[in-house]
Structure formats: structure tokens, C-alpha cells
């Protein structure tokens, strides 16, 4: 099994076999993650620091659990409250942290490229937990694992990604990953929330959701940030829900066995109808959360193995 990366900075750097390696390992961790009282010691003795320069509850909790279930010592640092406010630069923060000799550094930052900049300055393995509008690789991997388990495969599927594509790192990582695995990707959303030049990524772009959902195997909804709702990018919340919210009527256009995904947290009644989100026959939203822990366990395990290789 080969995973020749020091860091997990993005999907862009991964090859399809490496993605499969990671997903296979994650699959094997689902059981461990579910088991009561069982704890692995794979990361025992290693220190994992979660550095979140931007608010996050679920991703941080998921990384924390993943580390603990593998036996790592996990520390959380709330960076908004700390030295950044005192004027310390990102590089200095990185160097300070590096001197504490962590083994795994999980970083979220509001600026695109910031995690990769930080990774250049530290000796440990860095996992990107989301940088600006750039990438969120573990989210794309957990989405992929969820799709693979629900659909039995991760290729030749018609996948509609709907909503605020422009501001979404989740969308970017998913477009890269699902594209590498040879799926048909449709992007659905108002043109004001569609990034320029996106057609060149090998995707189909729809501004009519009904057309975009037609015969889709997977419907992936994105969160619409509150600050984008008021007239800036879309006229109003209610018009958005009318045209781009996932309801039963629009979902009926997708394949009968299409699954519904959402990276959370959801705005019920804005991008998704609550009843669909809760429909256990269609919605895999809770599975996504569960797969998140397994995928992060796998990612940290693989990177930790490479740490050992360097030391040897």
C-alpha cells in the first residue's frame, strides 16, 4: 500500500489509487469506530494538535474523536482567541508550534493556501481541515466513502452538486475527487454563486435545478452562508429555496434510488426541505458524519506511517 505524501493538503495531489487506498482503510475503521470500549493504539504516543483559525464544531470534533480512537494525544487550540489577535504571523505561529514537536497538525484557516504555507514551515504531518475557498480534502473523502457504501461503486455515477459553488471548498475538493474517479459531475446553482471558468474543470453547469437533477444518482447539497442570502448574491432566502432548495418535487426528477447528501450544518428550508433531510430512505447525511470520523482516522494513520518511515 503506497501513500507517498507527507501532508494531506488537498485532493489535487492525490491519484485515484491513493484515494482508493485511503477509502479502503477508512472502511476498515468504520467497525472500530462503532465498537464499544475498543480503542486502537496505532497513534499511541503521537501528539495531534487541532489548530482552527476559523469556527468549526463538527470538523474539529470529528478530528478529535478520530485521533482519540486511534490512541493519539489530542490537543485543541482555538486560534481566533490566541496569538493571531496579538499580531503574530502565521509563520511564527507555525514555528512556535513546531518547537513543541507535534506529530499531526490539523489546520483550518480562512485564507486559501494558508495551510500549505504553514506546512512548508513545520516538520510534522499537516492535514488540511479547510483553507478558505480552496480545499477541504477530508470532507470530499468522507463524501466519497459515503457514496461508495451507498451505491456500491465510486465511478460512472451522475452526481449533482447544488448551491453555493463559488464560496465552497467542499465543492472544489469534491469536483476534483469525483472527477478523478470518473464520474459525471453537474454543478447546479444561480450564476452569481458559480465560479468563473468552472466549465473548464470538466463539469456540466446548470442554472435550472430541475434539469440538473434529472436522472442523478447522487444529489449533494451545499450550505448557503447566511451572509450571502441578503440581496448580494441572491435576491432572498425564499426565492432561493423556491428555485434551488431541494424539495420532494425536484428530487423526484433524480433517479428513484438517488441519495441526498449535505456537508452540514444545514439550513432547513433554505437549501433543503427538512423532511428530505430526515428521510432515512434518501438522506445519508448522518452516514456522512459517521464516515467523517473513519476517513480522518485513515488519513492520520497513513500520514503517521510515513512519519515513521522518515525517522527510520
Amino acid at each position: 500500500m503506497s501513500f507517498p505524501h507527507r501532508h494531506l493538503l488537498g485532493i489535487e495531489q492525490l491519484t485515484p489509487p491513493q484515494i482508493v487506498t485511503l477509502l479502503d482503510l477508512a472502511d476498515s475503521y468504520v467497525g472500530l469506530s462503532r465498537g464499544k470500549g475498543e480503542h486502537s493504539t496505532i497513534l499511541a504516543g503521537l501528539t495531534q494538535i487541532n489548530m482552527f483559525f476559523e469556527n468549526s464544531t463538527r470538523t474539529q470534533a470529528s478530528f478529535e474523536l478520530a485521533g482519540k480512537r486511534l490512541g493519539a494525544d489530542v490537543m485543541n487550540m482555538a486560534m481566533q482567541a490566541s496569538s493571531i489577535k496579538k499580531g503574530e504571523t502565521l509563520i511564527d505561529t507555525a514555528l512556535t508550534l513546531n518547537a513543541m514537536h507535534p506529530d499531526l497538525l490539523v489546520v483550518r484557516h480562512p485564507h486559501s493556501g494558508a495551510v500549505s504555507l504553514l506546512a512548508q514551515k513545520v516538520n510534522c504531518a499537516v492535514l488540511n481541515a479547510g483553507d478558505g475557498r480552496h480545499e477541504h480534502p477530508t470532507q470530499a473523502l468522507l463524501d466519497a466513502l459515503t457514496i461508495r457504501r451507498a451505491k456500491g461503486r465510486l465511478h460512472r455515477l451522475v452526481i449533482a452538486i447544488c448551491g453555493d459553488i463559488a464560496h465552497s471548498r467542499v465543492a472544489r475538493s469534491n469536483i476534483l475527487l469525483l472527477g478523478k474517479m470518473e464520474n459525471r459531475i453537474r454543478l447546479v446553482g444561480p450564476p452569481t454563486l458559480m465560479p468563473a471558468g468552472i466549465e473548464e474543470f470538466g463539469v456540466e453547469v446548470y442554472d435550472d435545478m430541475r434539469e440538473g437533477l434529472k436522472d442523478a444518482d447522487v444529489v449533494m447539497m451545499l450550505r448557503l452562508q447566511k451572509e450571502r442570502m441578503d440581496g448580494g448574491f441572491i435576491p432572498s432566502e425564499r426565492e432561493y429555496f423556491h428555485r434551488y432548495g431541494l424539495d420532494a418535487e425536484k428530487l423526484a426528477l433524480a433517479k428513484p434510488d438517488a441519495i441526498v447528501m449535505h456537508p452540514g450544518p444545514m439550513n432547513r428550508g433554505v437549501e433543503i426541505d427538512g423532511t428530505i433531510a430526515d428521510d432515512i430512505n434518501r438522506s445519508v447525511i448522518q452516514d456522512q458524519v459517521e464516515m467523517g470520523v473513519a476517513v480522518r482516522m485513515a488519513a492520520m494513520d497513513l500520514l503517521a506511517r510515513n512519519l515513521g518511515a522518515q525517522a527510520a
Binding site: E12, S112, D131, R133, R169, R172, A196, I198, F201
Partner: peptide
């Protein structure tokens, strides 16, 4: 500048 590169890197872009 807006376009494929800006979208790939997720950077704020201008037409």
C-alpha cells in the same frame, strides 16, 4: 484575475 486558475485556487478574483 477571475477564471479557471482563480477558481481552482479559491482566491477572490476580479473580472
Amino acid at each position: 484575475t477571475s477564471g479557471k486558475f482563480a477558481s481552482l485556487r479559491g482566491l477572490p478574483a476580479v473580472s
